[in-house]
Amino acid sequence: MTDAPFDSLTGFRAALSRLPAPDAAAFDAAAARNAALAKPPGALGRLEDIALWYAGWAGSARPQLHRPQVIVFAGNHGVTAREVSAFPSEVTAQMVVNFEAGGAAINQLARTFGARIDVHALDLARPTADFTQGAAMEEDDLLTALRVGWEAVDPGAGLIVAGEMGIGNTTAAAAMAAALFGGNPRDWVGRGTGVDDAGLGRKAAAVAAGLACHRGHLLDPIEVLRRLGGREIAAMAGAIAAARVARIPVLLDGFICTAAAAVLERLSPGALDHALAGHCSDEPGHGRLLAALGKEPLLQMGLRLGEGTGAALAIGLVQGALACHSGMATFDEARVSTG
Protein backbone atom coordinates (compact mmCIF):
# COMPACT_ATOMS: atom_id res chain seq x y z
CA MET A 1 0.00 0.00 0.00
CA THR A 2 1.30 3.45 -0.99
CA ASP A 3 0.84 6.67 0.99
CA ALA A 4 -1.44 9.12 -0.79
CA PRO A 5 0.63 11.75 -2.64
CA PHE A 6 -1.62 14.58 -1.44
CA ASP A 7 -2.48 16.22 1.87
CA SER A 8 -5.23 18.55 0.67
CA LEU A 9 -8.14 18.52 -1.72
CA THR A 10 -6.09 20.79 -3.97
CA GLY A 11 -3.42 18.11 -3.99
CA PHE A 12 -5.98 15.46 -4.91
CA ARG A 13 -7.13 17.58 -7.84
CA ALA A 14 -3.50 17.96 -8.91
CA ALA A 15 -2.98 14.18 -8.79
CA LEU A 16 -5.86 13.80 -11.24
CA SER A 17 -4.35 16.33 -13.62
CA ARG A 18 -1.35 14.11 -14.43
CA LEU A 19 -2.78 10.65 -15.00
CA PRO A 20 -0.71 8.08 -16.92
CA ALA A 21 -1.80 6.60 -20.23
CA PRO A 22 -1.78 2.90 -21.08
CA ASP A 23 1.31 1.34 -22.63
CA ALA A 24 0.76 1.88 -26.36
CA ALA A 25 3.53 -0.51 -27.39
CA ALA A 26 2.11 -3.31 -25.25
CA PHE A 27 -1.38 -2.68 -26.63
CA ASP A 28 -0.12 -2.78 -30.23
CA ALA A 29 1.85 -5.97 -29.60
CA ALA A 30 -1.19 -7.56 -27.95
CA ALA A 31 -3.34 -6.55 -30.93
CA ALA A 32 -0.83 -8.16 -33.30
CA ARG A 33 -0.87 -11.33 -31.23
CA ASN A 34 -4.66 -11.35 -31.16
CA ALA A 35 -4.72 -11.09 -34.95
CA ALA A 36 -2.45 -14.14 -35.21
CA LEU A 37 -4.34 -16.42 -32.81
CA ALA A 38 -5.83 -19.62 -34.25
CA LYS A 39 -9.41 -18.40 -34.59
CA PRO A 40 -11.49 -16.36 -37.01
CA PRO A 41 -11.08 -12.59 -36.56
CA GLY A 42 -13.31 -11.30 -33.78
CA ALA A 43 -14.61 -14.78 -32.94
CA LEU A 44 -14.13 -14.24 -29.19
CA GLY A 45 -16.15 -11.03 -29.22
CA ARG A 46 -15.74 -8.79 -26.20
CA LEU A 47 -13.21 -11.17 -24.67
CA GLU A 48 -10.76 -9.85 -27.25
CA ASP A 49 -11.50 -6.26 -26.27
CA ILE A 50 -11.03 -7.10 -22.59
CA ALA A 51 -7.68 -8.74 -23.27
CA LEU A 52 -6.37 -5.78 -25.27
CA TRP A 53 -7.60 -3.30 -22.66
CA TYR A 54 -5.88 -5.26 -19.91
CA ALA A 55 -2.67 -5.66 -21.91
CA GLY A 56 -2.36 -1.91 -22.38
CA TRP A 57 -2.71 -1.14 -18.70
CA ALA A 58 -0.62 -4.12 -17.55
CA GLY A 59 2.14 -3.21 -20.01
CA SER A 60 2.41 -6.73 -21.42
CA ALA A 61 1.49 -8.19 -24.80
CA ARG A 62 0.79 -11.56 -23.19
CA PRO A 63 -0.47 -10.70 -19.69
CA GLN A 64 -1.54 -12.90 -16.81
CA LEU A 65 -3.90 -11.79 -14.04
CA HIS A 66 -2.21 -12.09 -10.66
CA ARG A 67 -3.36 -10.90 -7.24
CA PRO A 68 -6.80 -9.37 -7.89
CA GLN A 69 -7.88 -7.25 -4.93
CA VAL A 70 -11.43 -6.58 -3.73
CA ILE A 71 -11.71 -3.65 -1.30
CA VAL A 72 -14.98 -3.07 0.57
CA PHE A 73 -15.50 0.34 2.20
CA ALA A 74 -18.26 0.96 4.73
CA GLY A 75 -19.84 4.22 5.91
CA ASN A 76 -23.01 5.52 7.52
CA HIS A 77 -25.29 8.27 6.23
CA GLY A 78 -27.26 10.94 8.07
CA VAL A 79 -29.86 11.02 5.31
CA THR A 80 -31.27 7.78 6.74
CA ALA A 81 -33.17 10.08 9.13
CA ARG A 82 -35.43 10.69 6.10
CA GLU A 83 -36.57 7.02 6.19
CA VAL A 84 -34.99 6.26 2.82
CA SER A 85 -33.94 2.70 3.65
CA ALA A 86 -35.73 -0.50 4.59
CA PHE A 87 -32.94 -1.28 7.09
CA PRO A 88 -31.54 0.69 10.06
CA SER A 89 -28.01 2.11 10.04
CA GLU A 90 -26.87 -0.51 12.56
CA VAL A 91 -26.85 -3.02 9.73
CA THR A 92 -23.72 -1.39 8.25
CA ALA A 93 -21.57 -2.34 11.23
CA GLN A 94 -23.19 -5.78 11.45
CA MET A 95 -22.35 -6.46 7.82
CA VAL A 96 -18.75 -5.34 8.33
CA VAL A 97 -18.47 -8.06 10.97
CA ASN A 98 -19.93 -10.51 8.45
CA PHE A 99 -17.40 -9.46 5.80
CA GLU A 100 -14.57 -9.92 8.25
CA ALA A 101 -15.92 -13.36 9.20
CA GLY A 102 -16.12 -14.41 5.55
CA GLY A 103 -19.89 -14.85 5.53
CA ALA A 104 -21.07 -12.38 2.88
CA ALA A 105 -21.70 -12.88 -0.83
CA ILE A 106 -18.60 -10.85 -1.71
CA ASN A 107 -16.42 -13.21 0.34
CA GLN A 108 -17.64 -16.20 -1.66
CA LEU A 109 -17.10 -14.51 -5.02
CA ALA A 110 -13.66 -13.18 -4.07
CA ARG A 111 -12.65 -16.67 -2.96
CA THR A 112 -14.03 -18.22 -6.16
CA PHE A 113 -11.89 -16.00 -8.37
CA GLY A 114 -8.79 -16.00 -6.18
CA ALA A 115 -9.09 -12.39 -5.04
CA ARG A 116 -7.76 -10.94 -1.82
CA ILE A 117 -10.44 -9.06 0.12
CA ASP A 118 -9.86 -6.09 2.42
CA VAL A 119 -12.51 -4.30 4.48
CA HIS A 120 -12.29 -0.69 5.67
CA ALA A 121 -14.96 0.76 7.96
CA LEU A 122 -14.92 4.56 8.00
CA ASP A 123 -16.05 6.11 11.29
CA LEU A 124 -19.34 4.18 11.47
CA ALA A 125 -20.22 5.65 14.86
CA ARG A 126 -20.28 9.12 13.29
CA PRO A 127 -22.59 9.17 10.26
CA THR A 128 -22.30 11.89 7.67
CA ALA A 129 -24.64 14.84 8.11
CA ASP A 130 -28.09 14.75 6.54
CA PHE A 131 -27.38 16.28 3.14
CA THR A 132 -30.88 17.77 2.94
CA GLN A 133 -29.85 20.11 5.78
CA GLY A 134 -26.17 20.79 5.03
CA ALA A 135 -22.98 19.34 3.60
CA ALA A 136 -22.60 15.60 4.24
CA MET A 137 -18.90 16.00 5.06
CA GLU A 138 -16.47 18.66 6.14
CA GLU A 139 -13.37 19.04 3.96
CA ASP A 140 -11.20 17.16 6.45
CA ASP A 141 -13.63 14.21 6.48
CA LEU A 142 -13.61 14.06 2.70
CA LEU A 143 -9.83 14.27 2.51
CA THR A 144 -9.43 11.51 5.10
CA ALA A 145 -11.81 9.22 3.18
CA LEU A 146 -10.05 9.86 -0.12
CA ARG A 147 -6.73 8.98 1.51
CA VAL A 148 -8.15 5.80 3.07
CA GLY A 149 -9.26 4.66 -0.37
CA TRP A 150 -5.98 5.58 -2.04
CA GLU A 151 -3.86 3.83 0.57
CA ALA A 152 -6.05 0.70 0.53
CA VAL A 153 -4.87 -0.20 -2.98
CA ASP A 154 -2.14 -2.83 -3.14
CA PRO A 155 0.39 -1.48 -5.68
CA GLY A 156 1.16 -5.07 -6.67
CA ALA A 157 -2.45 -5.97 -7.41
CA GLY A 158 -3.30 -7.04 -10.94
CA LEU A 159 -6.90 -5.82 -10.79
CA ILE A 160 -8.98 -3.73 -8.38
CA VAL A 161 -12.65 -4.06 -7.44
CA ALA A 162 -14.03 -1.40 -5.09
CA GLY A 163 -17.18 -2.34 -3.20
CA GLU A 164 -19.24 -0.70 -0.48
CA MET A 165 -21.62 -1.14 2.41
CA GLY A 166 -23.63 1.76 3.75
CA ILE A 167 -27.29 1.95 4.63
CA GLY A 168 -28.69 4.98 2.78
CA ASN A 169 -25.96 5.13 0.16
CA THR A 170 -28.19 4.56 -2.86
CA THR A 171 -29.90 7.83 -1.94
CA ALA A 172 -26.53 9.58 -1.75
CA ALA A 173 -25.50 8.08 -5.09
CA ALA A 174 -28.77 9.20 -6.70
CA ALA A 175 -28.25 12.74 -5.43
CA MET A 176 -24.69 12.76 -6.77
CA ALA A 177 -25.78 11.44 -10.16
CA ALA A 178 -28.51 14.05 -10.43
CA ALA A 179 -26.05 16.80 -9.50
CA LEU A 180 -23.42 15.60 -11.98
CA PHE A 181 -25.69 14.81 -14.94
CA GLY A 182 -29.03 16.51 -14.32
CA GLY A 183 -32.49 15.08 -14.68
CA ASN A 184 -35.46 14.52 -12.42
CA PRO A 185 -34.60 12.98 -9.01
CA ARG A 186 -37.15 10.24 -9.70
CA ASP A 187 -35.07 9.17 -12.71
CA TRP A 188 -32.14 8.35 -10.43
CA VAL A 189 -33.69 6.73 -7.35
CA GLY A 190 -34.39 3.02 -7.02
CA ARG A 191 -35.60 0.61 -4.38
CA GLY A 192 -32.14 0.01 -2.90
CA THR A 193 -32.62 -2.23 0.11
CA GLY A 194 -36.18 -2.94 -1.01
CA VAL A 195 -38.21 0.13 -0.05
CA ASP A 196 -41.89 0.27 -0.94
CA ASP A 197 -43.52 2.95 -3.10
CA ALA A 198 -43.74 5.35 -0.16
CA GLY A 199 -40.06 4.82 0.56
CA LEU A 200 -39.23 5.46 -3.08
CA GLY A 201 -41.09 8.75 -2.84
CA ARG A 202 -39.13 9.70 0.28
CA LYS A 203 -35.87 8.96 -1.53
CA ALA A 204 -36.82 11.19 -4.46
CA ALA A 205 -37.88 13.94 -2.05
CA ALA A 206 -34.57 13.67 -0.19
CA VAL A 207 -32.61 13.94 -3.43
CA ALA A 208 -34.66 16.98 -4.51
CA ALA A 209 -34.14 18.60 -1.10
CA GLY A 210 -30.40 17.95 -1.24
CA LEU A 211 -30.09 19.50 -4.67
CA ALA A 212 -32.05 22.55 -3.53
CA CYS A 213 -30.01 22.90 -0.34
CA HIS A 214 -26.70 22.92 -2.22
CA ARG A 215 -27.77 24.81 -5.33
CA GLY A 216 -24.94 27.02 -6.54
CA HIS A 217 -22.21 24.71 -5.23
CA LEU A 218 -22.66 21.65 -7.44
CA LEU A 219 -20.73 22.65 -10.55
CA ASP A 220 -17.57 21.37 -8.84
CA PRO A 221 -17.50 17.53 -8.74
CA ILE A 222 -15.49 17.55 -5.50
CA GLU A 223 -18.21 19.63 -3.89
CA VAL A 224 -20.84 17.20 -5.20
CA LEU A 225 -18.96 14.40 -3.42
CA ARG A 226 -18.47 16.40 -0.22
CA ARG A 227 -21.97 17.79 0.03
CA LEU A 228 -24.03 14.80 -1.16
CA GLY A 229 -21.82 11.73 -0.86
CA GLY A 230 -20.45 9.63 1.96
CA ARG A 231 -17.18 8.45 3.39
CA GLU A 232 -17.30 5.05 1.70
CA ILE A 233 -18.18 6.69 -1.62
CA ALA A 234 -15.21 9.05 -1.30
CA ALA A 235 -12.95 6.14 -0.37
CA MET A 236 -13.99 4.29 -3.53
CA ALA A 237 -13.15 7.38 -5.58
CA GLY A 238 -9.74 7.48 -3.89
CA ALA A 239 -9.09 3.82 -4.62
CA ILE A 240 -10.10 4.09 -8.27
CA ALA A 241 -7.86 7.15 -8.68
CA ALA A 242 -4.93 5.39 -6.99
CA ALA A 243 -5.34 2.43 -9.32
CA ARG A 244 -5.15 4.76 -12.33
CA VAL A 245 -1.94 6.35 -11.10
CA ALA A 246 -0.47 2.86 -10.61
CA ARG A 247 -1.83 1.69 -14.02
CA ILE A 248 -3.88 -1.05 -12.34
CA PRO A 249 -7.04 -2.05 -14.25
CA VAL A 250 -10.34 -1.59 -12.41
CA LEU A 251 -13.74 -3.25 -12.65
CA LEU A 252 -16.52 -0.89 -11.55
CA ASP A 253 -19.30 -2.35 -9.45
CA GLY A 254 -22.84 -1.02 -9.10
CA PHE A 255 -24.63 2.29 -8.82
CA ILE A 256 -22.79 3.59 -5.77
CA CYS A 257 -19.34 2.67 -7.07
CA THR A 258 -20.14 4.19 -10.46
CA ALA A 259 -21.31 7.43 -8.82
CA ALA A 260 -17.95 7.60 -7.03
CA ALA A 261 -16.14 6.97 -10.30
CA ALA A 262 -18.22 9.61 -12.09
CA VAL A 263 -16.73 12.29 -9.85
CA LEU A 264 -13.27 11.43 -11.21
CA GLU A 265 -14.45 11.50 -14.81
CA ARG A 266 -16.06 14.89 -14.37
CA LEU A 267 -12.90 16.21 -12.70
CA SER A 268 -10.58 14.83 -15.38
CA PRO A 269 -12.13 13.50 -18.61
CA GLY A 270 -10.57 10.15 -19.43
CA ALA A 271 -9.85 9.39 -15.76
CA LEU A 272 -11.79 6.13 -16.09
CA ASP A 273 -10.02 4.78 -19.18
CA HIS A 274 -8.46 2.10 -16.94
CA ALA A 275 -11.91 0.96 -15.77
CA LEU A 276 -14.54 -1.32 -17.27
CA ALA A 277 -18.09 -1.60 -15.97
CA GLY A 278 -18.28 -5.03 -14.37
CA HIS A 279 -22.07 -5.14 -14.56
CA CYS A 280 -25.26 -3.12 -14.72
CA SER A 281 -27.25 -3.45 -11.53
CA ASP A 282 -31.01 -3.52 -11.08
CA GLU A 283 -30.97 0.05 -9.76
CA PRO A 284 -32.65 2.07 -12.55
CA GLY A 285 -30.15 4.91 -12.23
CA HIS A 286 -27.17 2.67 -12.85
CA GLY A 287 -27.82 2.11 -16.54
CA ARG A 288 -28.37 5.84 -17.00
CA LEU A 289 -25.10 6.58 -15.23
CA LEU A 290 -23.13 4.06 -17.28
CA ALA A 291 -24.58 5.53 -20.47
CA ALA A 292 -23.53 9.02 -19.37
CA LEU A 293 -20.00 7.71 -18.81
CA GLY A 294 -19.91 5.76 -22.09
CA LYS A 295 -19.43 2.43 -20.30
CA GLU A 296 -20.98 -0.78 -21.62
CA PRO A 297 -21.40 -3.31 -18.81
CA LEU A 298 -19.83 -6.76 -19.09
CA LEU A 299 -22.70 -8.44 -17.24
CA GLN A 300 -26.38 -7.75 -16.63
CA MET A 301 -27.57 -10.16 -13.94
CA GLY A 302 -30.21 -8.15 -12.07
CA LEU A 303 -27.93 -7.74 -9.05
CA ARG A 304 -28.49 -4.94 -6.52
CA LEU A 305 -26.52 -6.10 -3.50
CA GLY A 306 -23.47 -3.87 -3.70
CA GLU A 307 -20.40 -5.05 -1.77
CA GLY A 308 -18.50 -5.30 -5.08
CA THR A 309 -20.37 -8.48 -6.04
CA GLY A 310 -21.15 -7.68 -9.67
CA ALA A 311 -17.61 -6.53 -10.42
CA ALA A 312 -16.15 -9.52 -8.56
CA LEU A 313 -18.24 -11.83 -10.72
CA ALA A 314 -16.77 -10.13 -13.79
CA ILE A 315 -13.25 -11.02 -12.65
CA GLY A 316 -14.00 -14.40 -14.20
CA LEU A 317 -14.53 -12.75 -17.59
CA VAL A 318 -11.17 -11.01 -17.36
CA GLN A 319 -9.52 -14.29 -16.37
CA GLY A 320 -11.17 -16.05 -19.30
CA ALA A 321 -10.18 -13.31 -21.73
CA LEU A 322 -6.53 -13.42 -20.64
CA ALA A 323 -6.44 -17.20 -20.60
CA CYS A 324 -7.49 -17.27 -24.24
CA HIS A 325 -5.34 -14.35 -25.33
CA SER A 326 -2.15 -15.45 -23.59
CA GLY A 327 -2.60 -19.21 -23.74
CA MET A 328 -3.93 -19.91 -27.21
CA ALA A 329 -1.59 -20.90 -30.02
CA THR A 330 -1.14 -18.72 -33.06
CA PHE A 331 -1.90 -20.08 -36.52
CA ASP A 332 1.82 -20.67 -37.08
CA GLU A 333 2.32 -22.41 -33.73
CA ALA A 334 -0.68 -24.66 -34.29
CA ARG A 335 0.28 -25.26 -37.92
CA VAL A 336 -3.22 -24.30 -38.99
CA SER A 337 -3.64 -23.08 -42.54
CA THR A 338 -5.07 -19.62 -43.05
CA GLY A 339 -6.13 -20.41 -46.60
Rank of each mutant, 00 (worst) to 15 (best):
M1R: 11
F6K: 14
G11C: 03
R13A: 12
A14D: 15
A15G: 12
L16N: 07
L19K: 10
A21F: 13
R33I: 15
N34C: 15
A38L: 06
K39T: 08
G42A: 12
G42F: 12
A43M: 05
L44F: 14
E48C: 14
L52N: 15
W53M: 11
A55N: 15
A58L: 05
P63G: 07
Q64R: 15
H66C: 10
Q69R: 09
Q69P: 01
F73G: 02
N76V: 07
A81G: 03
E90R: 02
E90S: 09
Q94T: 05
V97Y: 06
A101E: 12
R111F: 08
T112F: 13
A115W: 00
I117Y: 00
I117T: 00
L124P: 01
P127F: 11
D130C: 10
A135I: 05
A135N: 08
A136T: 13
E138N: 05
D140M: 11
A145D: 09
L146Y: 05
V148H: 06
V148I: 13
G149H: 08
W150A: 08
D154W: 00
G156D: 06
G158N: 00
V161I: 04
V161H: 00
T171E: 07
A173I: 02
A175Q: 01
M176Q: 05
M176A: 01
A177R: 07
L180Y: 04
F181S: 12
N184I: 05
N184T: 10
R186G: 07
R186K: 07
D187S: 13
W188V: 04
V189P: 06
G192R: 13
V195R: 11
D196M: 13
R202F: 07
R202N: 07
R202A: 06
A205Y: 05
A206M: 07
A208W: 02
A212M: 02
D220K: 00
P221Q: 07
I222K: 10
I222E: 13
I222R: 04
L225W: 04
R227E: 06
G229E: 11
G238Y: 03
A241L: 07
A242K: 02
A242Y: 02
I248G: 01
I248H: 01
I248E: 02
P249V: 10
L252P: 04
D253V: 04
G254L: 03
G254E: 03
C257Y: 06
A259W: 03
A259E: 00
R266N: 08
S268K: 14
A275I: 08
A275H: 04
L276H: 10
A277E: 08
P284F: 15
H286F: 07
G287L: 06
G287F: 08
R288P: 04
A291Y: 01
L293H: 08
K295W: 02
Q300G: 01
L303V: 03
L305S: 00
G306I: 08
G306S: 09
E307G: 01
T309Y: 03
G310L: 09
A312R: 04
L313C: 13
I315E: 11
V318W: 14
A321Q: 14
S326Y: 09
S326G: 13
A329S: 15
T330P: 12
F331R: 11
G339E: 01
